[in-house]
Amino acid sequence: MKKILNILMAALVLAGVSCTDDLEYKPGGVTPVKTLLLPADNYYVELQSASTATLCFSWEPALAADGQLPHYEVVFFSQPGGEIVYRYDAGSSTSIDIAHKEINRIANAAGIDVGADGAVYWSVVSSRGVDTAPVTAEPRKLELTRLLGFNVIPDQLFLTGEATEVGEDLSNACVGRKTGDGEFTFYQKLEAGKGFTFVSSKGDDRTTYTVVNGVLSDESVEPATIDRSGIYRIKLDLNVRGITFEHIDRVEFNFAPRTEDNRDMDYIGNGCWKLSNYSVEFREESWGLDQRYNFHPVFDGVMYVWAGAKGNDSSPSELSGADYYIQTENLYTGDAYGPEKFKFHSDFNGKKVDITLIMSGDVENCTHVIEIVG
């Protein structure tokens, strides 16, 4: 019996070793990228802040021993033969469009000052699993002019000051809506002749931004002022130190089938407008009930349309949610219906409602809320 038990134990040990061997990862190997395609060596680009501004990088593929697609990173150097200062994940593709704003960060990592001319060098690293090939393709030179922005761009921005609706108490500062990398929008009523600033946080480590000679500055704490009291849409682009102020004359609620019932909405503060006790009456047409509506903001005398997704022809199935998000803004052409619109939920027909338009940074998406009040 003892001999049988010893044999069984030996068999189990051998089986365990065999299983362990089977589970061990065996790297398959990958060839390096040998040829870079785009951009050409010594290519020059003047970086732009637009979200659509990109530069295409491409290369010939590497080969993995296991037959699967390799993984690629575009790597950047401050000088030929130097250390890698930035890596950009390209996945399994052999080309990638890198945003100018990302290249601006790469240039910063390479030591190029804001607004200055300089050069970075790039190549591509291939890998498969834990196996990484060396940089073989000779790095190419990319000449560029950096954006005239800030080296450190915050993920959030607040508006505070005596001129604002919330006053100088920093704890009450209103948060901006982040609309892109380094881009923020505020809707706020400002009082002429009184000061306001933008801050990166409500803590002691905050950076303060103000307006000097029409551009943003982080070197002055002197509050900015505005010449005309009113409600404004304020757009900031910290990538280029840009700021614009658009006076919002009014916001009109537009019920397309009954434009005679259109009314201006009341501004209630913090980027919100409200229309109270509005009587909803769908118009009966030969094809059914017409229940289309949208919003008409007027910026400095020019009317625009705020509406849902283009081509949206469905009534919402819920009384709140994504069907109520403001997703488009276009110049008003005089067509009350237009391609961009919302549709009332069927529950609102024949009812009195309050409609609240919310454009502030306190909500994740610009939206509106409709409540039955009678």
Rank of each mutant, 00 (worst) to 15 (best):
K3M: 14
I4K: 15
M9Y: 06
V13C: 12
V13W: 08
V17R: 06
V17K: 05
G28K: 14
G29W: 08
G29M: 08
T35Y: 07
T35M: 04
L38V: 05
V45Q: 09
E46H: 06
S51Q: 12
L55Q: 06
C56H: 00
C56Q: 11
E60W: 01
A62K: 06
L63V: 14
A64N: 08
L69H: 04
E73R: 15
V74F: 03
F76G: 08
F77C: 05
S78C: 02
Q79H: 05
P80W: 04
G81Y: 05
E83V: 13
V85Q: 09
Y86H: 13
R87Q: 12
Y88T: 06
D89C: 00
A90K: 11
I96Q: 14
I98L: 05
I103V: 05
I106R: 01
A107K: 02
A109N: 08
G111Q: 01
A119D: 09
V125H: 01
A133E: 07
P139G: 09
K141M: 10
L142R: 01
E143H: 02
T145C: 01
D155Q: 10
A163Y: 08
G167E: 06
E168Y: 02
D169I: 11
K178C: 09
F184C: 07
F196P: 04
F196R: 07
D204S: 15
V212E: 14
V215L: 10
L216Q: 11
D218Q: 15
I226F: 04
G230T: 12
Y232R: 11
I234W: 07
K235D: 14
L236Q: 04
N239L: 05
N239E: 07
N239P: 01
R241L: 05
E252A: 07
N254Q: 11
N254D: 13
F255G: 12
A256P: 00
T259E: 14
E260G: 15
M265A: 02
Y267Q: 00
G271K: 03
W273N: 01
K274F: 02
L275S: 02
L275N: 03
N294Y: 06
F295E: 06
D300S: 13
D300F: 04
Y304T: 11
V305L: 06
A309E: 13
G311C: 02
N312P: 00
D313P: 00
L319Q: 06
L319E: 10
S320H: 09
D323H: 07
Q327W: 03
T333R: 11
G334D: 05
D335S: 10
A336E: 10
G338D: 05
K341M: 09
F344E: 06
F344P: 07
H345C: 03
S346F: 05
N349M: 02
V353Q: 10
D354G: 08
L357W: 07
D362Q: 13
C366N: 13
